[in-house]
Write a protein that binds this DNA or RNA. Structure first.
Length: 784
DNA sequence: AGGTCCCGCCAAAGC
DNA sequence: GCTTTGGCGGGACCT
């Protein structure tokens, strides 16, 4: 077996085959205390793919053109390592069984692993520059190593590097997956397949997620987007970077460097008192985005770790103690490794008085033309110091998570020679008057709901940059909710007050009776026509402002970049999707009298805090919910005639209001005006997720199902972007956690420490314990 | 010796 | 209470 493996490796990989080595070693050692990772490696091979995944992978394989080889590998596959592999995870056995049952899957997996090296090699050439000096060395080393100890070298540290691991990971998926594919990723599986600890996968995935190369769906589940959204994301990051004034900081930093010790560790910062917000504030994901931002706004596109670390430390309000600095740098290395694997940066060194400093140079795109936005934003080089206008913009558009802008402010001050009062005071103080804090806080009380197609929304006055709490910027695409065909309903998520909710509006224009079945099929004739008309009309407008629109939408990324960006990318599909709901149309054609006659209201506690208002035009049984997406309405609900709701406060108003009502960015068709929504308590996130679903937004039923099932399988609602909601799911999912306040949930993507404001402000630094201490604890089990 | 960064402890967050 | 995430930093490895 081993022999086979080795042979295979040799044949397929010019480089050192990462996974195998460890394994071999393991065998040698007999699995001593070796790293689990290594041990794991062996198992990897046995790791089966999830059935759902298999389908996808077949696609991938084809796409990658590795198919031919697959067969080849197939016979070899038999790596029995499986045998020795004891359940690495609780599900290992099951996986093994599955694997056994699905040789194809296994083969595919095998192939992926085996060819990974090749793929990597292939990829590299594509971007020669990608290789950093170090990388090159690394590569050579690998080759050497491989040759030398063909079979038994102990996996060198490098072979276990995050960068390499990342490459392996990346090699598993296509850079540009078909937009119709929904590639599901199971962290567990990947970890097993790659033979590493999950912990390591988290590191990679977090960074990838920060660039929207993957998106989190649920616990342990991610969706692979590939590089399709990369550019958009980068563009957005660039914009944010500028808004954040990173370019200024970079300059300052450079100056400081040149000027001397400057504010080296600016001990002034280091107080520690403000242990950065919550955990996520320091997340690798956020840090990664910021790191990337630095590159994107840097004139030289080169960032030294030192600079990055300092800037980030400052921003996070972490104390600037040396240890903090070191920790930051360590993280940056992690991030850099992943980015390097992505070919986005390469390691370089910059010379300074005191020798050279490690730095990274950006290799990715810096100028983005695909967005009309670029027009508004001057190229990096031309970007003038954030000034008035710029600032304003930044302020307005800044996402809560980025609201912190402490640095910006600080920078501004410096730049404006404003009093250099302690930055700290400005930075991130929960209660600080800075706009962002307000925004953040107001979330619960404000909602921003968008109905219908995004285009309309776009049209709507809701400026992306609106200072609205971006808590929720759910552009609801019914298509997403009701994966297929046009649904005569519209689902609205109302992140109102403390508990946002979802409202389902049912238009009774059509024969209620039909609706159930009807909407399964494409919109009714009349609707079709109307839609078409409207679409055409829209098209004009849309086309005209499409760019801007998309940008706007992207702007919403501030609220939730992940979701939004995804939308931006798919906007095309989504918007033009034939499944646009009737309501949507009504929306477009304001005259459309398709007023929902009833609403379905699902008690807050009925569906995990989701409230529904659904038109009662139809029999409960025929809730017009597409069968395929919502086979059963497994949730308590009450049908209420519109009239019955008339006395409820009008939380959602017509389109017109939308525009003006600062409290409600609500885009509703005029016809909806009279509508009243019972805003219940539904944790934020639902809409968001829905909104985000376009990402995975299946255009095909299967995909829809896939997505839905995935969600259903592991609904989760961490914070922000991770919320997984699926109203389309038959079973009541728990989209979000009540614990999480809308506010916290809102800060998804671009989040900064201070963002949490009061909410998390008091986050204890309790966790600050040195390893030594930890060890002590171990020695003396925490009495607690 | 300084730069890198693997590794895994363990606490927070999610179920 | 268990699992998943992921912050964190000691210390090994590399240059």
């Amino acid at each position: 077996m081993e022999v086979e493996c080795l042979a295979l490796k040799d044949l397929t990989s010019p480089r050192k085959s990462f996974p195998m080595d460890p394994e071999e070693e393991e065998e040698e050692d007999g699995g001593q205390s070796e790293q689990k990772e290594n041990i794991c490696t062996g198992r990897r091979k046995s790791t089966p793919l999830k059935s759902a995944e298999s389908a996808i992978h077949s696609l991938l394989i084809n796409r990658k053109g590795a198919t031919p080889d697959l067969a080849h590998i197939t016979h070899i596959t038999p790596i029995k390592h499986t045998a020795l592999a004891e359940p690495w995870t609780p599900t290992a056995n099951l996986k093994m069984l599955i694997s056994a049952a699905s040789p194809d899957m296994r083969d595919r997996e095998m192939k992926k692993v085996l060819f990974r090296p090749i793929e990597n090699e292939k990829d590299k050439p594509a971007s020669p520059d990608t290789v950093t000096e170090d990388t090159e060395v690394e590569d050579s080393c690998q080759f050497e190593a491989m040759e030398e100890d063909d079979a038994e070298k102990k996996p060198s540290r490098k072979q276990k590097s995050l960068g390499l691991l990342c490459q392996k990971f990346l090699a598993l998926y296509p850079d540009y997956p078909s937009p119709h594919d929904t590639i599901w990723i199971s962290l567990d599986e990947v970890a097993t397949n790659l033979g590493v600890e999950r912990r390591r996968i988290y590191d990679i995935v977090n960074v990838l997620e920060s660039l929207m190369i993957v998106g989190r769906i649920a616990k342990n589940s991610y969706t692979w987007y590939g590089r399709q959204r990369l550019e958009v994301t980068l563009e957005e990051l660039q914009r944010r970077g500028r808004q954040q004034g990173y370019h200024l900081q970079m300059e300052l930093s450079a100056e400081a460097r040149g000027a001397g010790p400057g504010r080296e560790d600016d001990g002034g910062e280091g107080d520690g008192g403000q242990a950065a917000g919550n955990r996520k504030d320091k997340s690798l994901r956020i840090m990664s985005q910021k790191f990337v931002m630095l590159f994107l706004v840097s004139k030289t596109q080169t960032v030294t770790l030192d600079t990055a670390a300092k800037i980030l430390i400052e921003e996070s309000q972490d104390s600037s103690s040396h240890s903090k600095y070191k920790t930051k740098v360590r993280r940056l290395y992690d991030i850099a490794n992943v980015l390097t694997s992505l070919g986005l940066i390469k390691k370089v060194h910059v010379r300074e008085e005191r020798g050279r400093k490690p730095a990274f140079k950006w290799l990715g795109p810096v100028e983005f033309n695909n967005s009309g936005n670029s027009a508004a934003i001057p190229p990096p080089e031309a970007t003038p110091p954030m000034a008035g206008q710029d600032l304003r913009k930044a302020k307005m558009a800044r996402h809560a998570s980025f609201n912190i802008t402490p640095t910006s402010i600080a920078v501004q001050r410096q730049v404006n020679s404003a009093p250099s009062s302690p930055r700290r005071e400005l930075i991130g103080l929960p209660n600080h008057p800075v706009d962002y804090s307000r925004k953040t806080t107001g979330n619960s009380a404000v909602c921003r709901l968008q109905f219908g197609n995004s285009t309309d929304n776009q049209t709507s006055p809701l400026p992306p940059s609106s200072a609205q709490p971006t808590l929720l910027a759910p552009t609801l695409y019914p298509e997403n909710l009701f994966s297929s065909s046009s649904s005569p309903h519209c689902l609205a998520y109302l992140p109102s007050l403390s508990q946002p909710s979802v409202v389902m509006l049912y238009r009774a224009t059509e024969t209620p009776d039909h609706i159930p079945e009807g909407h399964r099929s494409p919109t009714s004739e009349s609707e079709e026509g109307r839609k078409r008309r409207r679409e055409e009309r829209e098209e004009e407008e849309t086309v005209a402002k499409k760019k801007g629109t998309e940008l706007e939408e992207c702007d919403k990324m501030r609220d939730d970049p992940q979701r939004e960006a995804a939308q931006c990318l798919q906007s095309g599909n989504t918007r033009t999707s034939p499944s646009r709901p009737a309501l949507d149309e009504g929306l477009a054609s304001g005259s459309e009298p398709a007023q929902p006659s009833h609403y379905l209201y699902v008690p807050n506690n009925g569906l995990n805090s989701l409230n529904f208002l659904l038109s009662a035009g139809q029999q409960p049984a025929g809730l017009a919910l597409p069968h395929n997406s919502v086979p059963t309405l497994a949730m308590p609900y009450v049908l209420l005639p519109s009239a019955a709701l008339s006395h409820y406060p009008l939380l959602a108003s017509s389109l017109q209001q939308t525009v003006s009502d600062p409290k409600l960015s609500f885009t509703l068709p005029t016809m909806m005006s009279p509508a009243h929504f019972m805003v219940g308590a539904a944790p934020y996130g639902l809409a968001a997720e829905i909104n985000r679903s376009p990402v995975t937004s299946p255009s095909t039923p299967e995909q829809s199902k896939l997505y839905v099932s995935a969600v259903a399988a592991a609904p989760q609602s961490p914070s922000g972007p991770r919320h997984t909601v699926s109203i389309t799911t038959p079973e009541p999912l728990t989209p979000h956690t009540p614990k999480e306040t809308p506010a916290s949930a809102s800060k998804a993507f671009f989040q900064t420490p201070c963002t949490l404001g009061g909410v998390v402000s008091a986050t204890p630094a309790s966790r600050k314990r040195g390893s030594a201490q930890r060890r002590l604890d171990i020695g003396h089990p925490p009495s607690s």
